[in-house]
Design a protein around this nucleic acid. Structure first.
Lengths: 163, 163
DNA sequence: TAGACGTAGA
DNA sequence: TCTACGTCTA
């Protein structure tokens, strides 16, 4: 049980390979992949600007993120999208959403982790998918008339294939 | 990131020594010390009866558990004791509380883990304190007139000292 | 102090 | 489905 406290950064993490799997979000933090225990979008400040460092696309939360060959459409955060108790609101271009927009504008790499539900529903299976770039983003109006941000990311070519 | 799924049992855990420290509750689960990610009392069914396997006494949650030389007074679970939103209710002799009561009656060992707040407030420091036996339990009436269970446990002699 | 794509078991 | 001594950042 060694004490872990990794500095988060943009880009690949030394020692972590595409396809590496983890069981808990605390493990993602321990190895330096994703710092936030409950947030999908992790980001850091460089000077006065936020950039995304990593996103985890966990299935089964009502976000309906779509993984396709080399692409990913990812739903922004905020607006109580997955809350059962709180009222849905418009998502805003702040926090993680703003960080992803900045990553697009400045062509910063984003680590992508996919979280899959396990058949035994004990923990998840978090798989490191590699580095992506944000291609564009837009807003959609969801069921209850609220604004939701969508980010399209493409996988940077030349990385090991996902089996 | 090897997949972990340990069978929980009563008594000491092979390979775990008094004083071993951990950072997250998911680690406690991984090594077989404490299965529940957010509950203080872990227990298992033997035949038709529940017995406690381990308790974590985390500081800073308004439970006011007391560690003394060889003794521990532990607050039972339930009743929304630490909830800020929900109304406080009477604790009942069920779930983990019932398991601890059975551990007293049948003299079953209980693993004790102490969770301390860290100065940097990142993670906790969970320390394995060794095996205890429940000496007795009682109820108290707390501030808002609600029933709270208290369990007194003593540390089984002959174990390595806690430095 | 509150918010956020957490976890497991009853 | 819900509860439960979670865990981090803003």
């Amino acid at each position: 049980g060694k004490r872990v406290n990794v500095e988060m950064r943009i880009g690949s993490v030394p020692g972590i390979k595409v396809g590496d799997e983890f069981q808990y979000k605390t493990q993602l933090r321990a190895v330096g992949l994703h710092s936030k225990p409950m947030c999908g979008i992790d980001y850091m400040k460089v000077g006065d600007m936020k950039f995304a460092t990593s996103i985890t696309a966990s299935e089964g939360y009502g976000y309906n993120d779509k993984f396709d060959s080399g692409f990913l459409v990812y739903t922004g955060e905020g607006g109580n999208v997955i809350s059962k108790e709180k009222k849905t609101e418009n998502q805003k271009l702040n926090k993680g959403n703003l960080a992803l927009a900045n990553s697009l504008r400045y062509k910063k790499e984003v680590r992508v982790i996919r979280g899959e539900e396990r058949w035994d529903r004990k923990g998840k299976r978090y798989t490191y998918f590699g580095l992506y770039l944000v291609e564009n983003y837009w807003t959609e109006i969801k069921d209850r008339g609220k604004v939701v941000y969508k980010f399209k990311l493409f996988r940077i070519p030349g990385q090991p294939p996902l089996t």
